[in-house]
């Protein structure tokens, strides 16, 4: 190797190896695009606390990372409620100090009584909603009303439906259709759910939890199993798209903020959560992500036109809290996972 090339290589290597040490201030892990792009900048300007955004793709991924590293490296993580519950059970979540989060008062009272964490002792809800059916009114003969319309689709819809592939929601659809609890992992229930899903698989276009709304817009699919907020992305592109909660009901999904027990900046973390609970962020979430937030003052400040264009945005908290939440399955997880594998591997 020539000396110049060696020198260039050495320079490149030293540039890489001399990466800065851990950042001071807060490190927050969230999905990309799930909070206002200028939020951290405004937060720092107002409080003087430096903050950096780390991004994760899925709950599962950040969870794996936190378990492997014992939770170090992050101060606050955004995860869905069953994952928050597991973090708490594993001793990785810090207790929330309500005295340092006065903006908790902005939440609906219902958002303080969530089944996984009554009183919000270790997790603060950021957004919530339902799971149901999203469909093209111009491509289905009769509007769907039941989970069975998805699981046993009409002949004209065969090969035109998709289901969510994330295990809990996939099995959840069958649980709701059968009138079972979403968190029931008894052998009989799993057996019945598995049988129903394997039968449904034959008529399915795909399992899809990332591009199903695009499939509706292109007409590839006519009816999809969807989270309400994502269905709104389809509605925004094509007004023929509609969302319905089947008569058997839905789950209540909740995305939460959790402060890590390993955080060395817990006061700053509480200050951040307090800042996020302000009206402005809630309004941004509703207007830009088209998700409902448990933030009362934000929801009340929304343009009524938005609620008209996206009717599921108007589902009241009293109705939401009536739906069952997904809970960590604990001992039941093993049998549950095997059944999911069986469904996914079925021909």
């Amino acid at each position: 190797m020539q000396p110049t090339r060696t020198a260039a290589a050495a320079a490149l290597l030293s540039a890489v190896l001399a990466s800065p040490a851990a950042a001071e201030g807060l490190v927050i892990s969230n999905w990309d695009g799930y909070m206002p792009p200028d939020l951290l900048e405004r937060f720092t300007a107002e409080t003087g606390i430096a903050a950096e955004l780390a991004v994760h793709a899925t709950n599962e991924e950040i969870m794996g990372k936190l378990v492997a590293s014992g939770g170090t490296g992050f101060d606050i993580v955004f995860v869905s409620s069953p994952f928050a519950e597991a973090l708490n059970a594993l001793g990785l979540a810090a207790p929330i100090d309500p005295a340092k989060v006065p903006n908790l008062a902005n939440l609906y009272p219902e958002a303080m009584e969530l089944a996984h964490d009554p009183g919000n002792t270790y997790s603060i809800p950021y957004a919530w909603g339902t799971t149901g059916l999203c469909y093209r009114t111009d491509l289905v003969e009769t509007a769907p009303t039941s989970w069975m319309d998805l699981l046993k689709p009409a002949a004209s819809l065969e090969g035109k439906v998709t289901m969510l592939s994330t295990d809990r929601w996939l099995m959840g659809a069958a649980a709701l259709a059968l009138g079972k609890s979403l968190n029931d992992t008894s052998a009989e229930t799993l057996e019945a759910e598995g049988a129903l899903l394997i039968e449904a698989k034959e008529k399915l276009l795909a399992y899809d939890d990332t591009t199903f709304y695009a499939k509706l817009v292109s007409g590839e699919a006519s009816l999809v199993h969807a989270w309400d907020g994502w269905c709104n992305y389809g509605i925004a592109e094509n007004p023929e798209i509609a969302y319905v909660i089947p008569t058997e009901g839905s789950d209540l999904w909740v995305d939460t903020m959790v402060v890590m027990a390993s955080s060395e900046n817990k006061d700053a973390a509480m200050a951040f959560i307090d800042y996020v609970l302000g009206q402005e962020t809630g309004v941004w979430v509703a207007e830009n992500i088209l998700y409902k937030t448990p933030n009362k003052v934000a929801m009340e400040a929304l343009d009524p036109g938005l609620l008209e264009a996206f009717p599921n945005m108007a589902i009241p908290p009293a109705e939401l809290i009536g739906y069952e939440q997904l809970r960590d399955l604990g001992e039941g997880q093993r049998d549950f996972s095997r059944k999911v594998t069986e469904v996914m591997a079925a021909q």
Partner: peptide, 21 residues
């Protein structure tokens, strides 16, 4: 990675966008 912007690669960034498009 520590997942901060200074140590986020393109595939990491793109996959984190999957949820919101």
């Amino acid at each position: 990675s520590d997942n901060t912007p200074a140590a986020t690669t393109l595939p990491m960034q793109i996959f984190s966008m999957i949820r919101f498009g």
